[in-house]
Design a protein around this nucleic acid. Structure first.
Lengths: 200, 200
DNA sequence: GTCTATAGGTGGATAGAC
DNA sequence: GTCTATCCACCTATAGAC
């Protein structure tokens, strides 16, 4: 309601995120952001010292959440149950709060993010999470499936074009497909004796 | 060898594509393109009348190939065999010639392409192809799986980080995962006399 | 905290010589 | 077919008034 104190900084982040996602980071000027907020460019520079600091600020808490999830994932046993729990937590985050906007921004600005340290870090976390999803099976197939499981969660936002579908339904479908992919990742190189003896 | 006639236009396309993919369309200036070619900006404008015409030109033949594939896909019966054949043809294209570069460019520049007509068309073709992959099953799950099958082919380029892996191996893994996804799309409401009688 | 004004630079694009 | 020179719009970022 009131944008008295500190509110402006958040409003800037929100508007910038929206425009960066719609039009791209490079294609969006701070003039546009300022105009939509009804202020001038100079005002933005009071709150952020540069354009990419806005991105950094936006990505920051997302990074922390990813770190938490990765750490947790790595500490769990390399079982299918763990993988499913990880992707479910990931989906929970993606379907709640403002995280979806951040991740849509991330998807839509891969190139721009390559030259932004915050972007490179976020990218790094995605790979780390994918790697955590393959604990115990680093075969190419497993790596691909892990990445696709994550992407299933992301792409459910745009890939499913059924009209009137709810967010909950999107999430459910995403998890269903993700689970399928994760199930095809081999269980850990468990030291369980190989009963059959057939193996490549 | 010789860049006498017409060769320059192709060289421009190749260099531009490379830079647009690496750095992004918006972030790449024509000065950079010209510099890498050892010519001036003005020279580029002799061959292309604008920056986005370079993109159009690059995307053009890719569009035609997509159209051919889509038309073919739509003319085939809505069976799993068809879906597999479609994704295989798609992968063939993606793993041969210069198509991979074009698609990597496409992936990396989604936002920029939204404001380019060539980009919107290519985007449209991707959705059309995904739709063709779900003939007979327009459920959310099918839509998601179709998109992921296509993305499996794309992402095999970066998702698989196994060292020394060959392109052929990447392709094989991509198809394996894609087939898995496509298999989970329901067979059509076939009107073909059902010989066995068992069906959902 | 927000403004006006402006510095300092780069971008896409064009005119016209060679 | 390529160059030099140039236009003009716009961008990020800063200085300094209010």
């Amino acid at each position: 309601m009131s944008q008295s104190t500190g509110g402006t900084r958040e409003r800037i982040k929100a508007v910038a995120l929206e425009l960066f996602t719609e039009q791209g980071y490079e294609a969006t000027s701070l003039r546009e952001v300022a105009e939509r907020l009804g202020v001038t460019k100079a005002a933005l520079y009071y709150h952020f010292k540069s354009k990419d600091e806005i991105v950094t600020s936006v990505v920051e808490d997302r990074l922390e959440r990813m770190d938490t999830l990765i750490t947790w994932a790595e500490s769990q046993p390399a079982t299918l149950a763990t993988r499913r729990a990880v992707i479910e937590r990931y989906a929970d985050a993606m379907f709640s709060g403002e995280q979806p906007s951040v991740m849509r921004f991330f998807e839509q600005n891969q190139t721009a993010l390559k030259s932004l340290s915050a972007g490179r870090e976020l990218r790094d976390r995605m790979f780390r999470l994918a790697t955590a999803l393959c604990q115990g099976d680093d075969s190419p197939g497993a790596q691909l499936r892990a990445v696709l499981a994550l992407f299933a969660v992301h792409s459910s936002w745009f890939a499913v074009r059924t009209p009137d579908i709810t967010d909950a339904e999107r999430k459910q479908v995403a998890l269903e497909v993700a689970d399928e992919l994760l199930a095809a990742i081999a269980e850990p190189p468990t030291r369980v004796p190989d009963l059959s003896g057939r193996n490549s």
